[in-house]
Design a protein around this nucleic acid. Sequence first.
RNA 1: CAGUGCAUUA
Length: 245
Amino acid sequence: TRAYNALLKGYVKIGALKDAELIFLDMEHCGVSPNEGTYSLLIDAYMSAGRWESARILIKEMEENDVRPNSYVFSRILANLRDKGDWQKSFAILREMRSNGIHPDRHFYNVMIDTFGKYNCLHHAMDAFDKMRFDGIKPDEITWNTLIDAHCKAGRYDKAMFLFENMQENGCSPCTTTYNIMLNSLGEQGRWEELKEMFEGMKKQGLLPNVVTYTTLVDAYGKSGRFKEAIECLEAMKAGGMKPS
RNA sequence: CAGUGCAUUA
């Protein structure tokens, strides 16, 4: 099985899906049982090829062979669908998981929230968030960031700010990424004083500005014609030992 | 062993 998996990995990596399928069939023909890694590899390959139906067939086959699909596999599937814009299939995936008795883990929920957020389904995103907590999974700093960013992108700035405070009340401290999201949002709104406050608050917490932080600021200032603050940020970036992209 | 979030850019 190990040998076959290694071989499969090679074929998948170069995109020879057809050959990978042949090897998989050969495994069964030789009586070598596929394991969870075997299936993950193939499902992954199908997803990158946009063949969701083939992936689903494999999942069925897994349950017939008593190989338990992981929450990991489903996260990969969902992330792939998200990048293709097929967010509606999230529900089908959830059903698929439930029918196999698999509990979504934190990563999976984070991907799901992000998926809904990216397509402006904030209500579904919040539902997923609630369901996550109901399942006894503590929201991550990543969970909060994705939620906040989703609301920012949808123009729900009030709610985003609310979540930003809510996050801290729940014992999760904002990280650099959190601030990057907030800074980007404030810049798009042209709320320059609050942006400055936010930036200082960040440094007050002992958080170091990032390459992303600076490019966010430079872009915001530059696009609005505030060239001197843009240049100041560029200088600060270089002083921090970073290279502009 | 592997999966999730933020900016710019073709």
